[in-house]
Design a protein around this nucleic acid. Sequence first.
DNA 1: GATACTGGTAACAATAAAGTAACCACTAAT
DNA 2: ATTAGTGGTTACTTTATTGTTACCAGTATC
Lengths: 108, 108
Amino acid sequence: MNKDFFTCSNCPMTRTMATIGSKWKPIIIYALGERTLRFGQILVRIEIISKKVLTDQLKELEEDGIINRIAYKEIPPRVEYHLTEKGLELLPILNLMTLWNAKYSEQE
Amino acid sequence: MNKDFFTCSNCPMTRTMATIGSKWKPIIIYALGERTLRFGQILVRIEIISKKVLTDQLKELEEDGIINRIAYKEIPPRVEYHLTEKGLELLPILNLMTLWNAKYSEQE
DNA sequence: GATACTGGTAACAATAAAGTAACCACTAAT
DNA sequence: ATTAGTGGTTACTTTATTGTTACCAGTATC
């Protein structure tokens, strides 16, 4: 009985998925990249995401320290988002994943 | 207007998420690792996953060429699963993700 | 003959995630 | 006075994902 026995309560993968394992989060992070984008710009880039979902996901990503939100006190409002250091470190990993996927997507 | 304009229909991240972006898939892949495991063994390792969900996810992973399923014609039945080359290549990437997550999980 | 074993399946229930549509605040310009 | 512009929120509906329970096949053992 080896000690790497898999238990979900503190399985690293389970915990990681709890942070970025959702339909939209990796997409948002990827869309943001190294840019600073306004709410509306993200909305346009991801095209088919809804306002509400984007709001929700951005909020969660901010809570998890993956993105930074800066609201300027202007009218009409301007809110900018960009990845934190933590978020930026995720970028190359997500990139590897898309490369992996692309590599095996040639048969289509 | 630069050409990396983000369109979801063929956004690499969106497509990658379609393959492995579910609550359980990364966990199953991670649990499998380089081992060959029987259905029941995976079930025990992941503890809280249900039979049905595991069945479903394994089926999809097999369809996507990420795992191999070998059914021995024995009674009681014996079915073994292991990662394909494609699946194995995903392992280090998932590993990076758990490392990333662990790095920023110290505050808890 | 009853029971255990394994890897499922079927029918269904519950939950979580995502989507829709209307609305709001506040200012500037028409 | 009305409309546009931005970044939301609210209430609600729909859809997707997960989970539950009971059951099955077919052989071996008690």
